[in-house]
């Protein structure tokens, strides 16, 4: 019954969201320039290589030490790989000026502020829960427990992005002072 409810919820909420995002992206007049496209391509390649390496490393770990140590459940591993890939892609794009569309004014600072705000919200929600709300260990397998398990992953991605924003802002300040 619970699964049916989740399925209905997904159909009612996720499907209209996908349609709306698709319609919005069709009308989106913003674009990346050629250098940004190149950087985004490289970022995608790097993210792919890192996630594949991560999967390979986990496979070896599972093969040699999985029986004596803890294993990750399929969903935890998928979420971990997705999070790492996203963090690598966004960090690379931020550092190579390919994160914002052409003509975005003051994107770095405003995005940094939004990221800090989201980090604070995630920290608060994290502090209100215990580790058991996020992960559970059953038969030597680390699995996800409940919807709140996404919070640590979201927080990690936003923390990495915020740090990258700070580094990029600092880099730009240094370059500007050197040019002067």
């Amino acid at each position: 019954m619970k699964n049916v409810f989740i399925l209905i919820l997904l159909l009612c909420v996720a499907m209209p969201m996908v349609i709306i995002f698709y319609a919005l992206s069709k009308n989106n007049k913003h674009d990346y320039d050629e250098m940004q496209e190149l950087a985004r391509g490289k970022a995608g390649k790097l993210a792919f290589l890192i996630t594949m390496s991560l999967c390979g490393a986990y496979y070896l770990y599972d093969l040699f030490a999985g029986d004596s140590l803890l294993r990750l459940s399929g969903s935890t591993l998928a979420l971990l790989v997705f999070g790492v890939g996203l963090a690598v892609f966004s960090s690379y794009c931020i550092m190579h000026d390919a994160y914002f569309y052409v003509g975005t004014k003051d994107g770095l600072k405003s995005s940094c502020k939004i990221n800090i705000f989201i980090c604070i919200i995630c920290f608060v929600s994290l502090a209100m829960c215990s580790p058991k709300d996020f992960f559970e260990i059953k038969n030597g397998i680390i699995g996800l427990s409940g919807v709140s398990c996404f919070t640590p992953f979201i927080l990690s991605i936003y923390v990495i992005d915020t740090i990258t924003f700070f580094l990029k802002i600092r880099q730009e300040q240094v370059l500007e002072s050197l040019e002067e």
């Binding site: 320039d33 050629e34 250098m35 940004q36 000026d97 052409v102």
Partner: peptide, 20 residues
């Protein structure tokens, strides 16, 4: 119709622009 960073990279010689 490009980003400021692209112009900066071309001037610095960090990026080879397309003919376009």
């Amino acid at each position: 119709n490009v980003s400021r960073q692209t112009i900066s990279a071309i001037e610095k010689g960090d990026y080879n622009p397309t003919i376009k």
